[in-house]
Design a protein around this nucleic acid. Structure first.
Lengths: 219, 219
DNA sequence: CGCCGACCTAGAACAAGTTTCAGAGTTGAT
DNA sequence: ATCAACTCTGAAACTTGTTCTAGGTCGGCG
């Protein structure tokens, strides 16, 4: 069934390659290829982490030529960051279905992050691959990394229960995110224990007062 | 003057290669080589950042064979992390000579970090090289990365003016460090403005209350 | 019907980090 | 002075990410 042609035409008029951003609509077949690639990458990552995701192997596993792989994901980093976007979306969905139950904002945030952390713990190699990619990303991956960052912010804001955060609250959320990332990295490279992760996360959630604006008054 | 031999012997008895850790004392010549290598790396890094530090070029610039370079620094990451250790020591020295002047611990900490930040700003490529290496480091570099982390902690504790920090205070310092790192990364990859860096650093320093223990009482 | 253009494939080629190896060079001990 | 045990050198080889080239496939259109 030639459902592909007209869309290919559309893609052509706008850009040369399918982007990871929502910009260009992909053919069904192309969507399928993209999913195959991401799935193959995830499988490899689960087994051996960042180093095990080798572009030639990804191409072979997903039954795609190397050149095609690079057309879909312009670098290994792009590929792994896209994988992270995938996983984050899934996580956000799960969290929406089963929101955290803590009393205070700090408790809910810590609970959310620890839940995410336990999910990552289950596949540490996968986590390592994604996080390494994320932190190694240079300017050419900024848009994608930014998207990941926004998604993380959204997850935390959901946990807190804020819809219209003040700039101060946004800054606090950023600090929490930073701690989350850095702790994750320290844990993945064996420099922090599980306890330390837990402590740090709880510390930052407790101390970043998210319930009220800091500078302005709230009568 | 053959002051080299006995020390080489000493080195041999203990390990195969000179480590970056204080473990094995190096010959003068070896010290000189090591410094040449670090200097050459820094020069290359200043020019073009992480990518410009190419092992072949470093070897050539420092007049050392490639194999020798790898004997001193088992990987590019090790090399760049060692560069960071160097710079941090220098910074710590400077800070000791001219300590921050703020009234509160939070102010002094923020001042210290912003001063470090401005130093990095002067050589953004150098900063990029070091930070990329630091965050990309895997387990094999743990000891060195850990050393960097300890040095950073020491600098912050100096700024705060604490000598015997409580576990809670150490956790708070870790959160500050995490924020510092993550902000730096975001800035280097163009995802955060100078203002945002400043805001985040000040936010975390302000909110991480370092003046008194959190759990235990202070009569 | 047969050609066009976009996409895809296979595979070579290139770049940079890393490893390897044979042959010097050094140095302390005998 | 010679030896043994190192370290250093120079160059090639190997690995993996990335790019390039030449040709193949497919759907729509003249």
């Amino acid at each position: 069934m030639p459902a592909e042609a007209n869309r290919d035409k559309a893609a052509k008029t706008e850009a040369d390659a399918p982007r990871t951003t929502p910009a260009s609509p992909l053919t069904e077949r192309q969507e399928a290829r993209r999913r195959r690639i991401l799935r193959a990458s995830a499988q490899l990552a689960v087994r051996g982490g960042f180093d095990a995701v080798q572009m030639r192997e990804v191409a072979e596993s997903s039954q795609v030529a190397l050149g095609t792989l690079y057309r879909y994901f312009p670098s290994k980093i792009h590929l792994l960051v896209a994988m992270m976007q995938d996983q984050l979306e899934r996580l956000h969905g799960t969290l929406r279905r089963k929101p955290p139950t803590g009393e205070t904002a700090a408790e809910r945030t810590a609970e959310t992050l620890m839940r995410a952390f336990r999910a990552l713990q289950r596949e540490p190699h996968l986590a390592e691959a994604m996080v390494r990619a994320l932190t190694f990303a240079d300017r050419s991956v900024s848009p994608e990394v930014d998207q990941v960052s926004r998604q993380t912010t959204a997850i935390i804001l959901d946990a807190v229960g804020l819809t219209g955060p003040t700039p101060d609250q946004l800054a606090a959320v950023r600090v929490i995110e930073h701690t989350w990332h850095a702790t994750l990295i320290a844990w993945l490279s064996g420099r922090a224990s599980l306890d330390q992760v837990k402590t740090d996360i709880e510390t930052v959630c407790r101390l970043m007062d998210l319930t009220a604006p800091k500078e302005t008054d709230t009568p």
